[in-house]
Computed example of a mutant assay.
Amino acid sequence: MAITKTQRLKRRDTDAPRKPPSAYIIFAVTTRPKLIENNPQLSVVETAKHLSAMWRSLAPADRAPYEEAAKQDQARYEKALEEYRHSR
Rank of each mutant, 00 (worst) to 15 (best):
M1I: 06
M1R: 11
M1H: 14
K5A: 15
K5T: 11
T6F: 04
T6R: 11
Q7C: 14
Q7I: 11
R8Q: 13
L9V: 12
R12A: 08
R12F: 09
R12Y: 03
D13F: 09
D15N: 08
A16L: 05
R18H: 08
K19Y: 09
P20E: 09
P21K: 02
Y24K: 07
F27M: 14
F27Y: 15
V29F: 00
T30C: 14
T31M: 03
R32L: 05
R32D: 09
L35H: 03
I36D: 00
P40R: 08
L42A: 06
L42M: 03
L42F: 12
S43Q: 14
V45L: 04
V45Y: 13
T47M: 03
T47A: 13
A48S: 13
A53M: 07
M54S: 07
W55M: 10
R56K: 14
R56L: 13
L58G: 06
A61W: 06
A61K: 12
D62Q: 14
D62R: 15
R63A: 03
Y66C: 01
E67N: 07
E67F: 03
E67G: 02
E67M: 12
E68K: 06
E68N: 06
A70C: 04
A70L: 02
D73K: 12
D73R: 05
Q74K: 15
Q74V: 05
A75T: 15
A75D: 11
A75R: 11
Y77R: 07
E78H: 08
A80G: 04
E82G: 10
E83R: 00
Y84Q: 01
S87K: 13
S87P: 01
